[in-house]
Amino acid sequence: MLEIPVLLVVIVIVALIFDFTNGAHDCANAIATVVSTKVLSPRTAVAMAAVLNLFGAMLGEEVAHTLGQGIVNTDMVMGSQALVLAALIGAIAWNLITWYYGLPSSSSHALIGGLMGAAITHAGFSTLNAMSIVKKILLPLVLSPLAGFAVSYACMSLLMLLFWRTNRRTVTRSFEKLQIVSSAFMATSHGLNDAQKTMGVITLALFLFHQIDTIHVPLWVKLSCALAMAMGTALGGWKIVKTMGHKIFKLEPVHGFAAETSAAVVITGASLMGAPISTTHTITACVFGVGATKRLSAVRWGIAGNLVVAWILTIPAAATMASISFLILELLGIAD
């Protein structure tokens, strides 16, 4: 009979809880604009996002591989089976803090910061896969919001050029329908990138516990992570919806369409390259890009400053919390 360590079971459960909070925290990425423009009711938008997050989560595993073996050197952390648990505790703690205050920080980078903090506490900075972190984490961290801003600015500018003679009511009615499509695209891309991050963490735990020989994602891991994220999305993150959909820029359906489509394109491209980018960073930058086409003063840049502070703090804050968690687990005799 197959024996499964109790600690591994605990880690998988905590990882799925993180995935659930990720869905609740980040569902705003997919539905904030479509709700704020009143194209869909909150209940309908959340239901759609939950289903499409589930679908998107099953479409690939490139990002999962990056999380599983691209952040920490697996050979150097083989003796620390509680490392993943400490990382998850740190990430969840930061997620809950930012969720409480309605800040659209990145669940992805909270998880990455958690892994880094726990690994460093276990055996120093040499445990980190520095080149992979630079290429797959830090560069996308900077480039994805810049790309989102640029793509959404260009998309909105093109739409303004194409429809500048069209009656405003006609444009609004047309893009009310199109925004449902763009929101669906955004929800699918969110599942494709974000759910894979938890898949990668669980896969790393399975590897550390010698349950699998290589970093590959078992089907049951894909299914459980997809379902956990979908359930979290169904719960919703209404404070963040309010921040994303109302406080940055007063959105109309055409603006929502441009922002969501641009964000989904950037996120899907990053997912195919295995880059675990922040869907929150990307869609927020796209909302700013769309708003800037109207006039710079139309965007509430003070809100942007608060969001940037939250983004900058995420990795070190989650790393610190994970480090503390690892030390506490050591005191309890759980961390080897």
Results as ranks from 00 to 15, higher is better:
Met1Arg: 05
Val9Tyr: 08
Val10Gln: 06
Thr21Ala: 02
Gly23Asp: 12
Asp26Ala: 06
Asn29Phe: 11
Val34Ala: 04
Ala50Met: 15
Gly70Gln: 01
Ala82Cys: 11
Ala87Met: 09
Ala87Ile: 09
Ile92Asn: 05
Ile92His: 09
Ala93Val: 13
Leu96Lys: 02
Ile97Pro: 09
Pro104Glu: 13
Pro104Phe: 11
Phe125Gly: 04
Asn129Met: 02
Asn129Ala: 12
Leu139Trp: 01
Phe149Asp: 01
Ser152Glu: 12
Phe163Glu: 11
Arg173Cys: 05
Lys177Asn: 11
Ala187Asp: 11
Thr188Leu: 15
Ser189Gln: 12
His190Pro: 14
His190Trp: 08
Leu208Arg: 08
His210Cys: 12
Asp213Gln: 14
Ile215Phe: 15
Lys222Leu: 06
Leu223Gly: 05
Gly232Leu: 11
Thr233Gly: 00
Thr233Glu: 09
Lys239Asn: 11
Lys242Asp: 13
Ile248His: 02
Glu252Trp: 11
Glu260Cys: 04
Thr261Ser: 12
Thr261Phe: 15
Val265Tyr: 10
Val265Gln: 08
Val266Phe: 12
Val266Trp: 06
Met273Glu: 03
Gly274Cys: 07
Gly274Leu: 06
His281Ser: 13
Val287Glu: 02
Val287Met: 02
Phe288Tyr: 09
Arg295Glu: 14
Thr314Phe: 01
Pro316Glu: 02
Ala319Val: 04
Ala319Pro: 02
Met321Ala: 14
Ala322Ser: 12
Ile328Asn: 08
Glu330Ser: 08
Leu331Arg: 05
Leu331Met: 13
